[in-house]
Design a protein around this nucleic acid. Structure first.
Lengths: 240, 240
DNA sequence: TCAAGTATACTTGTATACAAGTATAATAAA
DNA sequence: TTTATTATACTTGTATACAAGTATACTTGA
């Protein structure tokens, strides 16, 4: 059995179904379970030492996230290619510009304070080289912005996107902490710019920040591939 | 027991879980199950004469659609207020403008042909006063446009939105066929304009069409309320 | 009358059992 | 050797059973 890829401390109060969902998602996005592979409920249940009920639940969720496809016999792994990652960021760009347009008509002092706090947390996470914590705060940063406009359907989209992004970011950040430590300065700077854009409500700053964020995606994609290669090398011998 | 609100012919090959999901969604959005009500798995299972397994499945789906909220004891019905309907159309506007921007860089002859076909179908549905069929074709129209750009995450958003919209449109169209028959001329005209916008790739036409579509939403909302009132009157005596 | 503790009737989450259907493999016939 | 048919070993979807936890109501004590 492979070790768990998903941070175990994030699952302290989670059900077996949630555990399987999160871990399976990580294994798929990391490439540990290869795209095109066929996974069956029974096999997964045996793998995770649980019954089919939580596994079924997990497969339903992952299918709604578009990383597997449920067929008559077994589920087919879709995974996350470069194209899909770009598409995710298309959606994020769409959501976040929408949110920004709402924010310019709102009082943002509370939000800016909250974001500043999260930014501090991110810095601490970097200082202690805690990739998982950094990923968590990074996601929280964007989620906080989206939540602030109280738009249940924008939040719904975010909630659908979130888990896949979480996996993706976790993996790429873990790789970056090992290889490209200096990147984090840029990420922090960009988030600071983001806060500034919200505070001043200047569209130009916002566009600038989003673009920089975009440029960063290519880096993330590279790191995901790196992470996938690292993992596949690590388990090469375990594949029966 | 109440009659089924969801078109039974759309469920010919569906599982018990799907049946419960669709029917429950209709009952919630129609207001037959009131917002704020607490529904439990056991009770629903008894109501639908199935076991808890398909009911659980249904509740998970409806929770991801934001029309119920899963709590420790029982699920709380959220329903669909005017605010949420507006929000859904915010998302649709966002998606469809994005799609349009992609379409202007594509060959749209195939798409336009397909859309024209669907428009014809819609006309037939009107002629025979088939509200359900009309709703189906209306949704298919927009889904076809979105599918055409091959963007899996835009499609994902659509798929998350679709079921709620389906219920909403079904109910409002049924009401309209009874009360505001002349509205359909306008709807058809607007869809024709939409096709034209795609064909000519003119943004001005597109904006015009989307705006008209928007104006129509208010009408739809009115009709949903009407439908809710009609239904609640119909079942008044059945409430124990 | 009121407070604290206990019983009870719920709830969810998971495991298991079973029915119905489908692909693969093995067997029989040409 | 190839084709048709039957077995078998899978698959999913649903029902049921059980464990653990939670709110409500009731009882008991002061």
């Amino acid at each position: 059995m492979t070790d768990f890829l998903y941070p175990s401390k994030w699952l302290s109060k989670a059900s077996a179904g949630d555990r399987v969902t999160c871990e399976l998602r990580m294994r798929i996005i990391s490439g540990l379970i290869e795209s095109g592979a066929i996974i069956s409920e029974n096999k997964l249940a045996a793998d995770f030492a649980v019954s089919r009920s939580p596994v079924r639940e997990a497969l339903k969720v992952l299918a709604s996230e578009n990383i597997i496809r449920l067929e008559r016999m077994g589920a087919v792994v879709i995974g996350l290619t470069e194209k899909e990652i770009e598409e995710i960021y298309d959606v994020r760009l769409l959501i976040e510009t929408f949110v920004f347009e709402r924010l310019v008509r709102m009082d943002v002092t509370e939000l800016v304070k909250e974001l500043s706090k999260i930014l501090e947390m991110m810095k601490v996470a970097i200082k202690y080289q805690d990739a998982d914590e950094f990923s968590y705060q990074d996601l929280l940063f964007h989620e906080t912005i989206i939540r602030s406009i109280n738009h249940s359907y924008m939040l719904m989209i975010w909630n659908n996107l979130r888990p896949v992004m979480e996996s993706f970011i976790l993996l790429s950040m873990r790789a970056r902490f090992q290889e490209k430590y200096e990147d984090f300065d840029r990420i922090i700077k960009n988030h600071k710019l983001y806060i500034e854009a919200i505070q001043t409500k200047e569209r130009t700053l916002m566009v600038q920040s989003l673009h920089q964020n975009f440029d960063d995606v290519q880096g993330k994609v590279d790191d995901l591939w790196m992470s996938q290669q690292m993992l596949s090398k690590g388990v090469e011998t375990e594949n029966d």
